[in-house]
Design a protein around this nucleic acid. Structure first.
Length: 309
DNA sequence: AACCCGTGGGT
DNA sequence: TACCCAAGGGT
């Protein structure tokens, strides 16, 4: 594990000093860290709507912040409200998604905009339960929108928060995905005041993104290192994760090429031309069929494939 | 519950 | 280089 000596001095049990205690997640210091070191991101600007928060959260699902920023700006400028997006064909959402990856997210975001328009009068719902009914909105995103969009008190646990929670309060590292237990554990540290709770959540997330990272954590700059159970335990390594399959030659690669061809074309593409993206006809056929089944592509006519209308 | 789903940056 | 993995969700 890439832990530097300078960041992790093997001190001999120095006094905890003014720490809140081993395994604590002290809100005051986390919020102070956020105040001092927060990144200026477009979805954090004053005036960001709950719809803006929802769009940013969906884009950020498994996609890095730096790649999301320009896409988010263009998306919000073009579709400032859910009805604006719902009024357009879903294929336009898929095209605007560009190369963010996992284009089903674009389809689901469009479906969410439609549901918000039809069932919620065009206003993004403000309760976790209602948000959970929206396509593409899971346990994390629902709470993120409630907390960051509406300043509700909800335990927001993404991969960053889970890493901080696990390390600081349990003394172990993890690469698992968050569970209901994790949300309950975080809730213990969540300030009661809703607005402060929302700031606390984004502060923990920011700490995980900037300092308490998977790679080389910046423990020497961490505001809660004195309370960190993981540090006290000597930075034990996380359990190994199951390797993902090879990318080259995968269905995902083939699907990606087909979608890129459809996005780059102004209108429908002849199947014969589309087949040129991959030499293995069997695999190409299987992937095209899966894209049609997913609704990411449609057969607009015999032998012609396009983005959904 | 394990597996699938895109793309690209970091090392 | 090859591999990890990044503000997850759906099945």
């Amino acid at each position: 594990m890439p832990v530097t000596e300078s960041d992790h001095p093997s001190d001999d049990g120095g006094a905890p000093g003014a720490g809140a205690g081993p395994g604590a997640l002290p809100a005051d210091r986390l919020i102070a860290f956020y105040t001092d070191h927060r990144r200026d991101l477009p979805w954090r600007e004053p005036g960001t709507t709950p719809w803006g928060v929802l769009v940013s959260e969906v884009m950020l699902q498994q996609t890095q912040v730096a790649r999301v920023v320009p896409a988010y700006r263009q998306w919000i400028e073009r579709w400032p409200t859910p009805p604006d997006l719902a009024a357009e064909p879903s294929g336009e959402a898929v095209r605007a998604w560009g190369r963010l990856g996992y284009p089903r997210r674009a389809l689901r975001l469009h479906a969410a905009a439609t549901a918000i328009t039809d069932r919620h009068h065009g206003r993004v719902p403000d309760t976790v339960d209602e948000l959970l009914t929206l396509p593409g909105v899971g346990e994390y995103t629902a709470r993120a929108v409630a907390a960051f969009g509406y300043r509700r008190r909800a335990p927001v646990v993404d991969t960053n928060v889970l890493r901080v929670l696990s390390r600081a309060t349990r003394g172990v590292d993890t690469r698992a995905s968050a569970t209901a237990t994790d949300r309950r554990d975080l809730d213990r540290w969540l300030p009661q005041d809703p607005d402060t709770a929302a700031t606390f959540s984004i502060a923990v997330m920011e700490l995980g993104a900037l300092l308490c990272t998977t790679g080389e954590p910046g423990c020497s700059q961490c505001p809660i290192s004195d309370d960190c159970a993981w540090r006290a335990a000597g930075y034990p390594a996380a359990a190994a994760v199951r390797r993902q399959g090879a990318w080259a030659g995968s269905d995902r690669q083939v699907r990606g090429r087909i979608m890129a061809a459809l996005r780059d074309a102004p209108a429908a593409v002849a199947e014969g031309e589309l087949a040129a993206v991959w030499p293995d006809v069997q695999q190409w056929r299987r992937c095209l069929d899966s894209l049609l089944a997913d609704g990411l592509a449609v057969r607009v006519d015999v032998g012609w494939i396009g983005l959904p209308g």
